[in-house]
Design a protein around this nucleic acid. Sequence first.
DNA 1: TTTTGAGTTGTTCGA
DNA 2: GTCGAACAACTCAAA
Length: 441
Amino acid sequence: MWFRRDLRLHDNPALAGAAGGDGHVVPLFVIDPRVWDHASDIRRTYLVRSLTALDESLSGNLVVRHGDPRTVVAAVASESRADSVHIATDFGPYGPSRDAAVEATLGVPLVRTGSPYAVAPGRVTKGDGTAYRVYTPFYRAWVQHGWRSPAKSVPTDWVSLRSEGIPAASCPIDLPAAGEAAALACWQEFRSDGVRDYSDRRNRPDLAGTSMLGHHLKWGEIHPRTILADLGDSDGEEVFRKEIAWREFYADVCHQRPDSIRVSLDRRYDTDFPWATGPETDARFEAWTQGLTGFPVVDAGMRQLRETGWMHNRVRMIVASFLVKDLHIPWQRGAAHFMSLLRDGDIASNAHGWQWTAGCGTDASPYYRVFNPVTQGLKFDPDGDYVRTYIPELRHIAGKSVHEPWTLLDGYAHDYPERILDHAAERNEALARFSAMKEMN
DNA sequence: TTTTGAGTTGTTCGA
DNA sequence: GTCGAACAACTCAAA
């Protein structure tokens, strides 16, 4: 069993397939330097902890090898005299070609069972067999298609083999608990407590209203099918099911259009849109990454990302709108920054969330939808608690006025920056640049 | 083939 | 303060 992004023992069809013969399984994880060397400290540290948890649940039998999977997997298969190698299908942008290359060097069958999705990308299509490009009809068809019940566990004897050990990694951030047990506990807690009020509370960054399952789903510590099997039909559960479906929709879009993780689906945004460039823009981008724009909710979000490796979804939209529509910087630059820091960063969801904000993706946000950082802050962080949590310079300001510190007396916060731009002016500028792109025809 | 209705997440302005 | 309209036109999905 070659584990990749399915670091769990329950509801794991590929593992059940591996154990299906005589129950003897060699559990393998490959540290691929081409991936490992480019991952952030946060992601490496989280992975190390998840692998440690997996190894414990395997009674210390996880075989970790370092190197190119094309040689490593074949070597382990040969050493252990395996008669097949089992994986879950990887639908990421790089996985399929790597797996095909491994398959070519492997002397035994590479068996693909299951995927990280309830419905594998490419399975839900329109009547004419082509992929959906609009979410709502996709969602209806996805529900209609349905998914299997959670897979049964199969008795397994773990076969010991030389392991090079889980590598070391650390980061200065306090990460949440990793591993399958933590993932299931996280889901059970959310299911019993949070999902009921999810439709209202999910938009509030000052409350713990979201599931916090993103990083668990990313590494397959829990399968979405496990979650869906538990979900009923209350408002909160329905909205949460739709969030699971968004993850699957964007995976499906990326399966059809792998280049869309870096190329705008509406190509005019890459070729005709007059994006801002130059040293001034670079300085503003830097201010954005550091949480020093002078707009409290934007800065709180960017600092939450930097300090915790996570940002609330509502705030992701606010800071993304700020980058694309107030700073006129291409979405790809923001997407890359997010991926470098997010502990739950999913390549498909990230790229298409950004494309939605920029207005160039599937179901794109209308061009005139420009988030007002003050209005959004007042609406979704009504007491200002979120801002004060991440911006110590503003902690002495009580209540919602923390969203507009410039309305207070002079010297309200001498160590918090002035606004780096005039939002109303940049909103008009964004609309003008959109018109300019259209004129290019 | 043609037609029709619909499309995650907003803001501003004027009555 | 509240509320509806305007903000483009287009593409998509399905009948």
